[in-house]
Design a protein around this nucleic acid. Structure first.
Lengths: 181, 181
DNA sequence: ACACTCATGTAAGCTGTTACATGATTAA
DNA sequence: TTAATCATGTAACAGCTTACATGAGTGT
């Protein structure tokens, strides 16, 4: 596994830090963010929960739902918290995907503020360098780039610019109210 | 395979429409867009090329590079073009990923203008609906969303807005100069 | 009766990655 | 000679999706 990659494993641990949930709850929650981060199918989510329980990173409690099928509510254990925080310390990969970044973002509560800022900063650098390399492509019209490449580069530049702007204002805000923790 | 999903297969076919290339050329080319679309590893790319050749969708020619290891230059066949265009006709999936969209964008030359416009239009609708659902999340602060979710929603809104703006101006441009073809 | 949502799970398969192997050529 | 880039390929594995199975309750 690539260093710092967000496998479902860690993402689930992070969500359980916020509050105990069932597998179904997790699916529901993620479907709301599916455009950005995708949402896992049952076939990948449930096995992950089982594995986490076998490693004692989470505990499971059967809750006999009223007029509903019983749920299995999972809670993170101390061992789970340790594993999660060890993972969070790792720097994200050189060229992390947008999806991986969003997943880390959702887990912001599990980060300390300095680490969160550092991650945003790192992302900023990555996006900036990407933006630069795309801009270079535009300046060099050698080998007559076709319509598709032009569109893709243009699209990439627009998204990168927007992301840079968002990162800048968000970093400012974090810096401003960095009293808590 | 999900309807209209861009497997490497079709993407390679599309690239070969632009000009004959070797596997290595394709990798190089894609690494420049890796931030947006990712770039395939040799372990996935070369087997795809072999499969395409076995199905007679591409032809292969050994070119003994001067002072370089020999290359295998692949060209698309008529059968390949037919398969590609059949695939292009398919509507993209309800909730296609950014990556899938970029890949289609790069293949714009293989689309007729009306189909390209239709794809952009479809993407516009998807992004717009996503933007709306995220905006709704902001208005409902019930269940006290935590920092992570707030950040993710905010980030999603910023990107969606930027993408909508790009799509609008690009659609305008396409409409404007839709004389050729 | 039928279909749908809730809720969990299994098994098969696809896609892609990593890690490795090969071999030539260029630059330190 | 050592490393790096060019160029191709294989084999093992990880991760995820699809399709299916189960079963209770709810709505039409």
């Amino acid at each position: 596994m690539a260093a710092g990659a967000v496998s479902l494993r860690y993402f689930v641990l992070g969500l359980l830090t916020q509050k105990p949930m069932s597998g179904y709850d997790i699916k529901r929650f993620l479907e709301g963010l599916s455009w950005l981060a995708g949402s896992p199918s049952g076939g990948s989510l449930y096995p992950v929960l089982r594995a986490l329980r076998q490693e004692d990173l989470v505990t499971m409690e059967r809750v006999p739902g009223i007029k509903r099928p019983p749920k299995k509510i999972y809670s993170i254990t101390e061992a789970g918290s340790e594993v999660l925080h060890a993972w969070i310390q790792q720097p994200i990969a050189e060229c992390a995907s947008l999806k991986a970044f969003v997943m880390r973002l959702v887990l912001a509560d599990s980060h300390t503020r300095p680490i969160l800022s550092a991650h945003l900063q790192q992302r900023r650098e990555q996006v900036a360098s990407h933006h630069k390399s795309l801009a270079n492509r535009l300046k060099v019209p050698a080998a007559g780039p076709n319509l598709g490449q032009q569109l893709a580069v243009d699209y990439g530049l627009a998204l990168a610019a927007a992301e840079l702007a968002w990162l800048d204002t968000t970093l400012d805000q974090l810096q401003g109210q960095q009293s808590p923790k």
